[in-house]
């Protein structure tokens, strides 16, 4: 008996007019796992996340987040998730502390917990000394950690991160993933999209999207193993089965699926 899935979608589709952004996608995300959502630009990752976060209504299919229906129970879902959009979206003209206090209030963090949660965010983002600075003046790496902190102020069991590390340097990315891991260790389900292959390696399982469709779903090791290829090796030219990199796997999967969308 596995526990109830954190996210479950079944034959989910979303059209914008005649254009099918997401088509017939089904999968489950287990509680507590770090679930990587990958695919070239325009694959439908953001659209899927927005449906799960209650920002967009699907055209057809079913979806459940924390056991609540994405069609009818978006209010229940919104209380139980954290969401970080692919655009930076804190208030640049508020200070670090003011942003934290605003989102804590919005999510109904109990008054007696607020100070503790604020301090936790300040320390995890490393912003203790900059608490009174305007958020717009911070570096991108700091902004993203602050945005993550604000998204989890209310300690949601499920966290959606849409390209949280795009555009920042490798050190900041590494720091960010340390935070993701500590949240996952504490039991949070993390649903994350990324462009970076080394980040894909950090995930428990990976879903690969292309042209609105799900084209692969497995652990990183499973995906590599399934794409082992015989290669002539060594001085004796023996045939050896070599594990490809994740990047090679994805490139060949996307190519087999007809190539990426041209936007």
């Amino acid at each position: 008996m596995s526990p109830k899935p954190a996210v479950r979608i079944e034959r989910l589709s979303k059209s914008f007019g005649a254009f099918r952004a997401v088509e017939d996608v089904s999968f489950e995300v287990h509680p507590g796992e770090v679930f990587g959502f990958l695919g070239p630009n325009g694959a439908g990752k953001t659209t899927t996340i927005k449906i799960l976060a209650g920002l967009l209504r699907p055209t057809s299919g079913r979806g459940e987040v924390a056991g609540f229906d994405v069609m009818r129970e978006t209010r229940e879902i919104k209380r139980r998730i954290g969401y970080m959009s692919q655009l930076f979206s804190l208030y640049a003209d508020l200070t670090v502390e003011e942003n934290i206090s605003f989102f804590a209030g919005l999510y109904g963090v109990a008054s007696e917990r607020r100070a503790a949660r604020r301090d936790w965010v300040l320390s995890m983002a490393g912003l203790g000394e900059h608490r009174r600075r305007l958020t717009g003046e911070l570096s991108l790496g700091w902004k993203q950690r602050l945005a993550l902190g604000c998204a989890v102020l209310h300690e949601p069991p499920i966290l959606f991160l849409d390209e949280p590390t795009s555009g920042v340097d490798p050190i900041s990315r590494r720091n960010f993933w340390d935070l993701i891991y500590s949240l996952a260790d504490a039991g949070t389900t993390v649903f994350v999209t990324t462009h970076y292959m080394e980040e894909a390696e950090y995930c428990n399982r990976l879903a690969l999207m292309n042209r609105g469709r799900l084209i692969a779903l497995d652990t990183p090791a499973g995906l590599r193993a399934a794409h082992r290829e015989p290669i002539l090796e060594g001085r004796e030219n023996r045939l050896e089965m070599v594990e490809p990199s994740l990047e090679d796997v994805f490139i060949s999967l996307v190519r087999d699926a007809g190539g990426a969308r041209e936007d």
């Binding site: 919104k78 655009l87 919005l106």
Partner: peptide
């Protein structure tokens, strides 16, 4: 325009 509306929409705010 700046994207904060989405952050409000994903919160319990009605």
């Amino acid at each position: 325009e700046i994207g904060t509306l989405e952050q409000l929409m994903v919160s319990p705010l009605t």
